[in-house]
Amino acid sequence: MNKSTPSLWKATFAIVRKDLAAEFRSFELVSAMLVFSLLVIIIFNFALELDIKVREAANAGILWTTFAFAGTLGLNRSMSVEKDRGCMDGLLLAPVDRSAIYFGKALSNLAFMFIVEAIVIPMYSMLYNVNLFRIDLLVVILLGSIGYAAVGTLLAAMSVQTRMREVLLPILLFPVAIPVLLAAVKCSSGLLAGDPFSDILTPFNLLLVYDIIFIAIAFMTFDFVVEE
């Protein structure tokens, strides 16, 4: 690597900045994810007849289902934009490490998920009268979203290059992301039920393990997914 090559961090943040700047100009993606999330929550409300008892057991599941669905929307969009406008080729030609592209896209996907979550969580708290603003719960949401975005970015990069494109992403992503979603649900429902932290230590550890393993794999295999 010569001296003119920007460092991994610099390149990564340049990509994140690019994505965020493009998004903040129109708020297309975030607003779509947000409206979609609210619709999912409303549908769940009536589909499950959420009275107070059912709701206490179902809160964590509904939240994570919403995040996962909205996340898929965002992942698909952010990758197909790159593909359609030919930006991906530009990024690949740029003299940066390929892993910078992966980390950049994963971080901006994560940022979109966070923005949506930052609005959905207070709304959900208000609509259903539960307090979701707890530091331990927010840590779980952070870890779950990281794992989901890590695998999702890799698989979205794959699915946009296939014939079925957007349709394929959930089919590829959900079965592989089940462990992270279920571990996150298990942690969240334990926390919401007021269990002590020691009780949710096992799912919490699995969440961490999943994050570490899948970030590592996605980082190692992303090269093979974008190479031409």
């Binding site: 698989l155 794959m158 079965p175 592989v176 462990p179 899948f214 295999t221």
Partner: peptide, 8 residues
């Protein structure tokens, strides 16, 4: 994908 599936 087989790699991801095999680990998950």
């Amino acid at each position: 994908y087989t790699l991801l599936g095999g680990i998950s």
